[in-house]
């Protein structure tokens, strides 16, 4: 169609085999994630594995089906920027909600006396501590 001397751009066309392989992998991951969710691995691991499989599937779709692999460096940078923006959103949301239960020996931060150890404990640990000591509250 074109001779090597003429200036031309390269359009990468993925092989059918590549696309079918990604498809098979995606279907397999769907069955694996549905099956793994039925096994009790202590909650945290169930959630982590489900999200890890979802991220793997999403990466496969983006990398091959959406052709990030074949795009310019600038487009790749934009894709990474999208992930970074999403991370900022999630990180600051959870740094707020995740830390709301934190107290200083069962008291609000504003009530803290300046004396004593300056460490803060999680709500759960603090409740355990209170149960053990059984100090009368006033």
């Amino acid at each position: 169609m074109s001779s090597p001397e003429t200036s031309h751009s390269h359009v990468h066309i993925p092989a059918v085999g590549t696309l079918v392989a990604v498809f098979v992998a995606l279907i397999c991951f769907t069955f694996i994630t549905a099956w793994v969710a039925t096994i009790d691995m202590g909650g945290e691991w169930n959630i982590l594995i489900a999200l890890a499989i979802a991220c793997t599937k999403a990466s496969l779709v983006a990398w091959i089906f959406m052709g990030v692999r074949y795009t310019s460096q600038l487009t790749k940078l934009f894709c990474v920027a999208g992930i970074v923006f999403l991370s900022i959103l999630l990180f600051f949301t959870f740094s707020d909600y995740g830390s709301r239960g934190w107290t200083y020996h069962g008291k609000a931060w504003s009530d803290n006396p300046s004396k004593g150890e300056s460490k803060f404990v999680s709500k759960e640990k603090n409740e355990e501590e209170q149960k053990q000591t059984e100090k009368p509250q006033f």
Partner: peptide, 14 residues
């Protein structure tokens, strides 16, 4: 995986 590199002729693409 083999990838096909398809040459787009500049004049036709133009």
């Amino acid at each position: 995986m083999p990838e096909i590199v398809h040459d787009v002729h500049e004049a036709e693409a133009e």
